Simulated scan of single mutants.
Amino acid sequence: MLTFLRYLLAAPLLVAGCAGVPIGCQLLSVYTLRRWRDTPFDVGAELADRLTEYDGFWPIPLALLLLVVMWRTTTMWPRIALVPSGCIAVGGLITAGFNELLSTVAALAAPLVAWTLAWLAARVVSWPVTGDVRRSPAEVAVRLRGGGRLRVQSRRLVLDKLPAPVHPAATVNRVALRFDRISHVEVGAVRAPAVWRFANISELTLTPGPVLRVIGGGQEWLLPCDDADEVRRLVTERAAVRAKPEPRPPLESKRWNMAKPLWNLDGDPPQRNTQKVQSGQHWLLVMSALTTLMALFSVYRVFTDGWGYLIGVLLFGGIGYGTASAWWTFVTSQRLAEENPRSPLADDPDSRHLPVTGWSSEPIILGQTSDM
């Protein structure tokens, strides 16, 4: 119930960021233009035009639709808010020579305002981390010392924003661990700087201080975070409530093609990596969304202007379906590689061994890096 109230508080911020900011910039642009031409300006009529005309500002409903689909993934909300405001900023740059300075400045500032509102909405939902948040599906992001970010999602942990993998054969730049595969969680500390290599061959420098240790799915994570005890509680409580087994495909499936190259890289020495790891292929999703909207618009024109627009329905609908299918195929393979950078047949690391030199199962005070 408390989580529902958090979403109610966040909803006005999201609507303001995704719809209020771009519509406000549009109204300001029209107002300055009408004032320059000395023509009347009716706020109600202009607002009604923005909300009702069929060829209106399509990025707004697209952003709102994405928010509904990704209502649990709070880290994506600021990016989604940039969809309509980014278009406003581009339009402001193009028309900078025709609009007044105030309108141009407002258009250029729109992405920053929209991003801030969406970020605040995400903070309202996920922080502070209380009992209702720990048991809810809402994503909670935790910054790590030395780089990296832990995202506690509905069914799994995701570790992203890591340094680039140190091997050119690495196929993913982040790793994930499903709650149902976690076998061990503990809080410890490192007393001296150390380098930890994750299963995707990314290396993170562990600075002295509290560290969260997570073992499962053949992986072992050492996560340097200052609130390690709170993060451990978040992970264990959510895993107890939200863990749900998901069967893996047969090892002969082509969906493993992105994961298998990682299984034999654990013992390889670091190499100079000049290749950029692909992540998400978001351009396919954007292309699919745009062509789908054009196909829906063509459907509307079929009923209003004749069957000639059926060609647009078939053309844009086919492109939208094809790009969406390609994106989904890539994402499912990538997700499988993130969750299985070790072979499903591999055993979990032994929780009794010392993962790095200077590891201690007892917490230490920051700055206390030796026993002397």
Rank of each mutant, 00 (worst) to 15 (best):
residue 3 T to V: 11
residue 3 T to P: 03
residue 4 F to P: 00
residue 6 R to M: 03
residue 7 Y to D: 05
residue 15 V to A: 14
residue 17 G to N: 07
residue 21 V to S: 03
residue 22 P to A: 03
residue 26 Q to T: 06
residue 28 L to K: 06
residue 34 R to D: 11
residue 36 W to L: 13
residue 48 A to N: 08
residue 53 E to G: 00
residue 55 D to K: 10
residue 58 W to D: 08
residue 59 P to V: 05
residue 60 I to Y: 09
residue 65 L to P: 01
residue 65 L to A: 14
residue 69 V to I: 15
residue 71 W to L: 09
residue 73 T to D: 15
residue 73 T to Y: 15
residue 78 P to Y: 10
residue 79 R to I: 10
residue 98 F to L: 11
residue 99 N to Q: 13
residue 107 A to H: 15
residue 109 A to C: 09
residue 110 A to P: 07
residue 112 L to E: 03
residue 113 V to F: 06
residue 114 A to L: 04
residue 115 W to V: 00
residue 121 A to T: 00
residue 122 A to Q: 01
residue 124 V to Y: 00
residue 131 G to S: 09
residue 134 R to T: 00
residue 142 V to I: 15
residue 146 G to H: 13
residue 150 L to K: 09
residue 152 V to A: 04
residue 160 D to F: 07
residue 162 L to Q: 08
residue 168 P to G: 04
residue 168 P to D: 07
residue 169 A to I: 05
residue 170 A to Y: 08
residue 170 A to Q: 07
residue 174 R to G: 00
residue 181 R to C: 02
residue 185 V to K: 05
residue 188 G to Y: 14
residue 189 A to Q: 04
residue 193 P to R: 08
residue 193 P to L: 03
residue 203 E to M: 10
residue 205 T to P: 00
residue 205 T to G: 01
residue 215 I to G: 01
residue 219 Q to Y: 13
residue 220 E to T: 01
residue 225 C to S: 03
residue 230 E to R: 12
residue 235 V to R: 08
residue 236 T to F: 07
residue 237 E to T: 12
residue 239 A to S: 15
residue 241 V to D: 03
residue 242 R to S: 12
residue 248 R to T: 07
residue 250 P to R: 12
residue 251 L to I: 08
residue 252 E to K: 12
residue 253 S to H: 11
residue 254 K to L: 11
residue 258 M to R: 15
residue 258 M to T: 14
residue 263 W to A: 05
residue 270 P to G: 02
residue 276 K to M: 07
residue 288 S to P: 06
residue 295 A to C: 14
residue 297 F to T: 02
residue 302 V to Q: 05
residue 305 D to L: 07
residue 306 G to H: 10
residue 308 G to Y: 08
residue 309 Y to Q: 15
residue 311 I to L: 14
residue 314 L to E: 10
residue 317 G to L: 02
residue 319 I to S: 02
residue 319 I to W: 13
residue 319 I to Q: 10
residue 322 G to F: 10
residue 324 A to L: 15
residue 324 A to S: 11
residue 330 F to Q: 11
residue 330 F to V: 02
residue 332 T to E: 12
residue 333 S to T: 03
residue 334 Q to V: 00
residue 335 R to F: 03
residue 336 L to I: 03
residue 337 A to T: 04
residue 340 N to I: 00
residue 341 P to F: 04
residue 343 S to T: 10
residue 345 L to E: 15
residue 346 A to H: 11
residue 346 A to M: 08
residue 347 D to V: 02
residue 349 P to A: 01
residue 352 R to N: 13
residue 353 H to L: 12
residue 359 W to A: 01
residue 362 E to T: 13
residue 362 E to V: 07
residue 363 P to I: 09
residue 366 L to F: 08
residue 366 L to R: 13
residue 368 Q to S: 06
residue 370 S to G: 04
